[in-house]
Simulated assay, not measured.
Amino acid sequence: MMVMDACYILQFIDKLPITGNPFSDNKLRSRNIALDLVLLENQIPFFVLQGIYDLTLGTLTPDQPALTTMLKALLDLINPFEEPLRVQNVIPDDHILGLLHKIYKPNFRLQEIKEIPTAHSAVELDKVGVKIRPNKNLTWPMAMEFEYSLSSHKPTLRMPVVRIDNFFEVVLRNLIAYEQYSPVENYVTSYAMAMHMLAANPVDIAKMGKSGVIVSHLGSNEKASDMISSICKNVNLQDFYYMEPWKNIGKYYDSYWLRNFGLFKRTYIDTPWKAIALFAAIIVFLITVIQFFRQLVTPFL
């Protein structure tokens, strides 16, 4: 059975990049097949796939790309992130789902802190002036970074752009299940938990969609919020790999002056027209005060 499955996978990924092939040009069928191949229960040992590849495609076609390169075309079909997948220096050792997990893994070790972080939703962060923006310079595929400096006064949480659809749910659920039952780092579980904190309600989904970090294909913000919340249900959070940006966000959120300055800026000067109106109101107020004191002083002159 494993030999037959491996032969089918190799045939599928070999035909996948070829245009004009009815077997691979049906995008919906190709995505469904790719999704089926990352289900945890459908995994076959990678050494079986590699061995049959070496005996067939690798031998018959000398210029055939490496197996991991061919599998990248398969995984690109179900990658929910806007950032393209990279397989350079990725050495698979278990199966296709494990390969995808390694692709999402950072090439450096993140700090592990075993504690539950403080949760702030996207709307809560927006109220105190924290903007959420796409991360164009990802240090790893699921990187989230908090940027703030006293000179710019623009606190920003940068995160990868993700498409929320049924494929997103299945891919993350299987990666999380793989992390829960295998001796690997819990990067995907941490990402899902972070998304659950940020997108706690439909209004958070709307805010993140407006910010350009979420592209929802589910038809309603309620469905997207429910999906993100359900992914982490009954999941054990062993390590949280976003503790550094979350701690910095917490410091900003709990700081009286920074938080209230952000709230003031968002309320009164976040647009040029509001800034002009505030400036005009201050001038009118000063003129009124000056005239008032003139009227008090005039009788004594």
Rank of each mutant, 00 (worst) to 15 (best):
T69P: 04
H101M: 09
K72N: 03
I113G: 00
V87Q: 10
A66K: 15
A73G: 06
L100D: 00
P80N: 07
L110G: 02
D63F: 05
T61C: 10
T61K: 15
T69N: 05
D93W: 01
K102C: 13
I113K: 03
L71F: 04
F108Y: 06
P84R: 04
G98N: 12
K102F: 06
A66F: 13
L74R: 03
H95W: 05
K72D: 00
I103Y: 08
K105Y: 00
K102R: 13
I78E: 15
P84S: 10
F81Y: 10
K102S: 14
P106Q: 02
T68Q: 11
Q111N: 02
L75K: 10
V90H: 02
L60P: 02
P80C: 11
I113A: 02
Q111P: 00
D76A: 06
T59Y: 14
R109V: 11
G58T: 06
M70H: 07
L97S: 03
R86K: 12
D76Q: 05
I78L: 05
F81E: 06
D94L: 14
L99R: 09
I103A: 14
H95Q: 06
D76I: 04
L97T: 00
L100T: 10
E115M: 09
K114Q: 09
L85A: 04
Y104H: 04
Y104G: 07
T59C: 12
P106R: 01
L85T: 09
L74T: 01
D93V: 00
G58K: 14
L75H: 03
P65R: 11
I103H: 06
V87H: 07
I91C: 07
M70W: 05
Y104A: 14
L75E: 08
P84C: 03
L100M: 10
P92G: 00
K102I: 12
E83Q: 15
Y104C: 07
H95T: 05
N107H: 13
D76K: 07
L77D: 00
E112W: 01
R109I: 12
N89E: 10
L97R: 03
L97I: 07
P62A: 08
L71A: 10
Q88V: 06
P62R: 05
P106G: 01
M70G: 11
R109S: 10
G58N: 11
P80L: 14
